[in-house]
Design a protein around this nucleic acid. Sequence first.
DNA 1: TGAATTTTGTACTTCATCGCATAATATGTA
DNA 2: TACATATTATGCGATGAAGTACAAAATTCA
Lengths: 209, 209
Amino acid sequence: MQDRTKNTDATKRPRGRPRAYEPETALRHAADAFWRSGYAGTSLDDLSAATGMNRPSLRAAFGDKHDIYVKALSDYWDRKFALMGEVLAPGRPLAETLLQAYDAALGIYFSGEGQPRGCFVVGTAVTEALEDPVVREIVSDGFIGLDARFRDRIELARAEGELSADVDSDALALLASATMHTIAIRARAGRPREELQALARKAVAAICR
Amino acid sequence: MQDRTKNTDATKRPRGRPRAYEPETALRHAADAFWRSGYAGTSLDDLSAATGMNRPSLRAAFGDKHDIYVKALSDYWDRKFALMGEVLAPGRPLAETLLQAYDAALGIYFSGEGQPRGCFVVGTAVTEALEDPVVREIVSDGFIGLDARFRDRIELARAEGELSADVDSDALALLASATMHTIAIRARAGRPREELQALARKAVAAICR
DNA sequence: TGAATTTTGTACTTCATCGCATAATATGTA
DNA sequence: TACATATTATGCGATGAAGTACAAAATTCA
């Protein structure tokens, strides 16, 4: 048997000096920094301060600034899609479902400590997408994916007779995505949460009319 | 009479060495640089290269980087509002009017040499709006102004019987703005112009249904 | 106890960025 | 022609940013 005096955990530790951070929470803190100031507006020192890691550790763990950003961006999409997957599940009226989707999004857009921050993608990645092919593809694929989720859910409502049979599910899905985008933009532009909730209600009513 | 041998223009020139640039075109070129790389991603050297002016001249003419950006942003809104004012004028069917509004917007979003660039506000200012109160207010005011233009035009169509009397003009205006925003975002994310034109057609059909 | 291993922390180098000081240039005015 | 004026052009200094080399620290393994 092996000696385990120094390792009280059940999990087997790797060999050298243990990490002083959890990779997932560190990446989350790095994302917070990017979320605040954007990609170009965030320095490695900012990331270092946000994560509590020094620059060499940051590099060893996640790569350079661009690598860190791409990881944070992908992680954001993952969480957003997971959330939307839950919220858009069938079983409730379409209007209620859409409203909850926007409410869930607002929960993310106003998740900053003290101040709102909008959508990570719309607020930071869209700016970089023009000159950064990697970011551009991640952003583009995400938007298309969200369109598809909305379309599937709306098409379901149409098939079940909740919407008139002659509506265009694609068109309504685009309006649903557009509403998400406009909320994301306005949140970062400082519009208050209640105003955006009211906007969502009006938009949903118009889409489901 | 004064001697005018050196001044062939009819306009009275100021006293010292003449400027080597036109302020308006220089500001436009500076805006192009910001439009490409965003506020934080653009250096004074970039602006210098884009305008052909050296840094001291830039500063003397427009102030520091932030001043230049704010001037470019305000100028962009001015031109966009002028364009929307023309396009949203009454006299044609609402659907045709909205379609032309999106077409005009696409004309701006694809006005870059060779490559698309999206909306200056959505693509660059929204990122800064979070931490820059001056930018935030300009952005927010602009969005609210565009909402109002759309609402007025839609309300006119409703009052004239073009839309059913029980539609909510505010709600439809929000969808019209949202459609503009989603087009702006997607253009910067690299979606082709034809796709966005098709999107606009579907959105307009759904809004005016 | 000591070697091996992995991470941390400090510091150094290089380059970019910004503001400003100063000289050169091009005009109008006397 | 000389001078005043306003701009352009060059360059310096301080600061920030990014990458990396190297020693110190904390752990596992023999």
